[in-house]
Write a protein that binds this DNA or RNA. Structure first.
Lengths: 336, 336
DNA sequence: CTTGACTCCCAAAACGTTTTGGAGAATCTT
DNA sequence: AAGATTCTCCAAAACGTTTTGGGAGTCAAG
């Protein structure tokens, strides 16, 4: 309700002194400081955020862009991550604004708007592409940011990511060890780093085992995309006996295709993300997920360190992938 | 990069004129306006958001509080709603900041911080309680807001809500029409409006049918809460033959309880929210959901109208509930 | 020639902070 | 007792916009 001027007047002090008292500077006497603080509490004084931001040349805001393209936003617990992140940022005086991308605008436009209008101090990026123009833009502008997902950018930048390559390689090798020889891959759009990375993991394992890498079909990272891609693989003269799917959503679509084609339950399948609904599919979906608790907190902490000026190369977290074994990966290798 | 002063200097104009030219005022000649606009485009001028906000006495920001209590945030597509909402708000020059509630703070504290620091122009509230202190606070402060969910507040306030009473009454009556007589209710915490509203709907239907309302158990609005509550009902001397559950999550927990107790599949069940995972449970979960497309857009539009000063009573949307029939509600009435 | 209307522009005053660069008084040093 | 140091405090200058209240010109009408 009140501003500094009124508060100062009512105390018979200068604005300067009141401001410094509240900020706890040493050059105001302890008694005055106490008096000011009491008066401030009394009237419920809160500094005007806009004024402070203007003067301090800081927006106290961080934006996260939310892709509205296919595959919408990511895993359903993504909001939990954002929420955790926002909470930690708030503790450092930063608020998190969500910046959805309207149809017709590119994510780059959004970044530009936020950055050039000095609306934010930093940015959070999700669903990175291998060549990500947002990353290039922010690097050029020198704005701190952290991505969820790596890129192929030449200059290093802070990120958090799961080691999709290792995860998918391990999953594929595990199928091989179980006797599978025709192991298919349901790939996501290869422009996305995570999709490409996982595809590479599958491919590497196949090559290590001396197997052909032709059983690969690409689709949108959605149920429908997985369904269509699986149908495509099932049309092949000799069908896969196991399927490694880029996301759980795609895996669930693939399960639907399997059911339709041969009554299902003959082909092993594994996904990635550990979606809650995977526990209820039939068979229950075996999957993978990034290790590490409280992703939001790491996200926030990396960003704060980036803002503080730590070099990007020290702000890269690559998390191992762990299996979440349910039942869908246990079909026999000889079935097909 | 540039500010108004530099831009004005480079053009040999005053700050005033440049500012007004960019804002399209009529008192600057068409030719000057054009010249200014070109120069602004040239150097990529964007007004400094903090300065504008200070001067205009508007934060250009809206906050939504995210409960971190039990039942976390709500349905998984909640982020989609927020995203849709943020998109529409952005079109009106407002950005959406998410305000999670740190452990130890109350949601009221958060509201206070945002409102009293003039960090926001308006607020969005979710998961309302019957007596909601946030609502009272915002009403007292005169800050525009919209809630997702009604309250028992005396003064009307803008809201969007589903007609849980009618929905749960209809679901219960439908069970009755199918021959069920022992219809149980798995209730959520009654301090929440939605939980209480749905409970009332069940109770009203039971009373209309002349049935006792003792088959009611309350739990946290989570899988575990539904599980425990269902176990409680199943321990009764004469078990329910049908279960009306406050949320899908609770219904899924109830399904687990049924499976454990009698192999399941003997008791009809229906939930609410239309969670994606409901399609995959066994049996597939019958459920209900609010009608109406694009909830986020309505949310945004109500808020904008509230900010524009429309009276609260005209900003209340109560949406009908529709059934999403899958299979779990079709168990015979005589089974138990 | 005056008057009024109109067009195009601008100086200066906000908005509410934080920060700079002291000023005056009291205390310490020598 | 003079100079140095410390302790409190403050006036004024930012920060970059928007808005108020005109001020010159020009032109047409009276």
């Amino acid at each position: 309700m009140a501003n500094l001027k009124q508060l100062a007047q009512s105390l018979g002090l200068s604005i300067t002194t009141v401001s410094r008292a509240l900020d706890g500077y040493a050059d105001v006497s302890a008694s005055t400081r106490e008096r000011v603080r009491e008066a401030a509490d009394e009237v419920g004084y809160r500094p005007n955020a806009s004024a402070r931001r203007l003067r301090r040349q800081r927006a106290e805001l961080v934006a996260v862009t939310l892709p509205s393209d296919p595959g919408h936003i990511g895993p359903p617990h993504f909001l939990d991550i954002l929420s955790g992140c926002a909470e930690h940022l708030a503790a450092a005086g930063l608020n998190l604004v969500i910046a959805p991308v309207p149809r017709g605008d590119s994510e780059l436009d959004i970044c530009r708007r936020f950055v050039d209008g000095r609306r934010v101090d930093a940015m959070l990026l999700v669903r990175t592409k291998r060549k990500d123009e947002r990353v290039e833009f922010l690097q050029a502008r020198g704005i701190p940011f952290v991505t969820n997902g790596r890129t192929e950018s030449l200059a290093p930048h802070p990120y958090i990511d799961g080691d999709g390559f290792a995860g998918f390689r391990a999953a594929t090798l595990r199928f091989h060890a179980a006797g599978h020889r025709r192991i298919g891959h349901i790939a996501g759009p290869q422009e996305y780093y995570f999709a490409h990375d996982r595809c590479r993991g599958w491919r590497a394992a196949m090559e290590e085992c001396g197997l052909a890498t032709d059983l690969c079909a690409e689709g949108a990272p959605l149920e429908q995309g997985g369904y269509l891609a699986a149908l495509e693989l099932l049309r092949q003269p000799s069908r896969p006996t196991a399927l490694v799917c880029t996301t759980d959503e795609m895996a669930i679509g693939a399960l639907r295709a399997l059911r339709e084609v041969d009554g299902g339950n003959q082909i092993s399948i594994v996904g990635h993300d550990d979606l809650p609904m995977g526990a209820f599919t039939s068979p229950p979906l075996s999957t993978m997920r990034m290790t590490g608790k409280n992703l939001g907190a790491s996200f926030a902490s990396l960003l704060l360190r980036a803002i503080a000026g730590e070099p990007a190369a020290e702000l890269q977290e690559l998390h191992a992938i762990e299996f979440v074994d349910r039942d869908s990966h246990r079909r026999p290798a000889k079935a097909a």
